[in-house]
Amino acid sequence: MDAASEVEQENGFAGKRGAAKIQERLQKRHQARTDDSDRRKETKENHSVAEEKLEYFSSTFNTERASIEQLLSSCSGAERGVVSQRLEEATAKTAQLKKFLNDSVLFLTQYELRQAQAALQKLQTSLAETREEALPKKKFAFRARSKAADKVASSASDSPDGATAAGTVKVDGAAASEQCGFSNIDSEFLTKTSEEIQNRDVLLTHLTNCKVRLFGSPSTLHLKHIDSCEILCGPVSRSVFVDHCRNSTLAFPCQQLRTHNTTDTQVYLHVTSRAIIEDCHGVSFAPFSWSYPNLEEDFNVSGLDRGRNNWSQVDDFNWLAAGTPSPNWSVITEITFCGNALKASMTI
């Protein structure tokens, strides 16, 4: 319809104003046509760039995958120490590969994305299987210390805490085995290794008087109902969520920190975006100062920026007055003292 009306108009012009006008219009049209073809050419070029990226992605992805598979297959029959080292390497590589896939999502088609995700899933499963086969899981290493505590812990794990689980019992039962972490433990020294928590969501609940060391880089960390504990954790690649924690010391690097209903707690923090508090009192912050042999590596796995730490910029959702600092949190001034204390306690 548009074309027809244009022709009509053109005829009208031709009749009235003569050849010069036609010439001009023709030129205009020619211009439009060349512009159009240029544009088409450009999109075509863009497309070819995308394909190049795609090729690069699939070749890199496949090489990495092959190398991890090789690592895994070389595990069978090897010595224990060698196996654990290889597994460690494979885990780190898988994490990197996952990151690479996530970064590449933008230019992948739905099909390729799904293919890659399936391959990754397969890789993770075979990684877990190899680990299970070569290094069967040990029970808690520090259990033997006190028999009383042992009893508490085992009876508690038999019957999940009624108060918190009430609303979600149905769901809890189904997937409890997949949850990684500690719960309902009193006065113990608890650790998790890098293989146990790498890229997992870790949950610590109902801990009293415990010292917890998480060596490695989990995806997220949830702390709930923590009393008089000292919890140190390696770099958390995403968010940390703290709820109902009192009289404790926490230390971790993370991307985001949300702290709720917490009192009298020190947080030794490396946060690359922001930390917030809500319904908290007496929470104090200092820069993250804990260290362990593989910290550097775990920082790399987590992808956190070491150079960006906003530990002192805490937003309080209960304190909206601009200009006046919130009375609910403070900065720890004796950094060196506490840092040393923290390091000293680590050597236990």
Partner: peptide, 17 residues
């Protein structure tokens, strides 16, 4: 959300919950 986490509940479990 967060289906990429190993401990995530399936969408069916969430639907039920």
């Amino acid at each position: 959300n967060k289906q990429d986490l190993p401990g995530a509940l399936s969408k069916e479990a969430i639907r039920e919950a």
